[in-house]
Computed example of a mutant assay.
Amino acid sequence: MQTTSGTERFNELFSELEDCDEDGQKLIIEEMNKIVYEMNEEEFKSVFTKELFNKMNKMIEDKKLSMGNVLLLLKRVGYCKVLKNMQIALRKEESEEARNEVEIAFLDLYSIGIGDLRQELYLNEIKEIIKYHQEHRNLSHLAYQFAWKFLINRSFYDENFEEVIVNDLHFARETAREIEELARNMDWMKEKEEERVNETKEEILLMEWLRKLEFFFRRCRMRNEEFAGLIESIVRVFRAAKDKHEVFSINAFMY
């Protein structure tokens, strides 16, 4: 397959890295990152091969490429991979395979460093995905939770996100709905913890919502009338779990 000028230029720049000092490498990688952002999926796969990563690893071992500059490049690769997978969600595909890919995309986005991630690379897309899900329920519980967790964590770096989270995307209303739906699918009737061999998926998701709520209440000041319904939902969950589920009872005490 004949490469495009963009991928050719990327490979040329990569070959120049080992002949530069660290500052020179940083400038080259900045140019490489601009090329990566413009790549389509086919070009992306043709460039980021096992062979490329092996070369990169050898350059690190030979001290010809600093780890800091490697991370500078790989962060952009991670962002672009996430953004390309998120277009699956924007196309509103509802197959099991599409759901899994969206979960992976949001997990990657939540896991990689977000402090220097530019807002325009993701915010509008995530808002559209969340709003579409609110109307059509096309995402899994896990994908939806990761989308919210990312936005809440991002509010740590930008207080303007609070307005988007609370009033535009209706965080309290949606969290209350998720908590109550997960709670309805849990078996509160097992009185002995020894009977429960493993936590269910619903239990794990519900606990993650409660942990993230604790962070939200400590970090964010903005509230609206929907928060009264959220508090009522939390209280109902803890009442249902009282004396039946030790973990949730402990968390009720912590609140």
Rank of each mutant, 00 (worst) to 15 (best):
S95W: 06
M32E: 04
I35T: 05
R76D: 12
Y122W: 10
E30H: 09
R211M: 10
E42P: 00
I250W: 04
M39N: 07
E181H: 09
S155Q: 13
D116K: 03
R154N: 07
S5H: 07
I28H: 01
N167L: 10
T3Y: 10
G24Y: 00
G113P: 11
D21V: 02
Q145P: 00
K81V: 06
N100D: 10
V47G: 01
F227Y: 13
I179Y: 03
E178A: 08
E43N: 04
I231E: 15
F238P: 00
C80G: 00
M254D: 12
R177K: 14
M189G: 04
L83E: 07
L123C: 08
I250T: 11
R76Y: 01
E31V: 07
R137C: 05
K131Y: 11
L83Q: 03
L74I: 15
K212W: 05
N224R: 04
E191V: 14
V235G: 07
H141D: 15
V47Y: 03
L83W: 02
K242Q: 12
S233K: 05
E18T: 15
Y122A: 01
S66G: 06
N11R: 07
E125I: 05
K84H: 13
K81D: 15
Q87E: 08
E225I: 08
S95E: 02
H133A: 05
C80P: 00
V247M: 03
N198D: 05
Q25P: 01
G6N: 15
A228N: 13
E246G: 11
G68V: 02
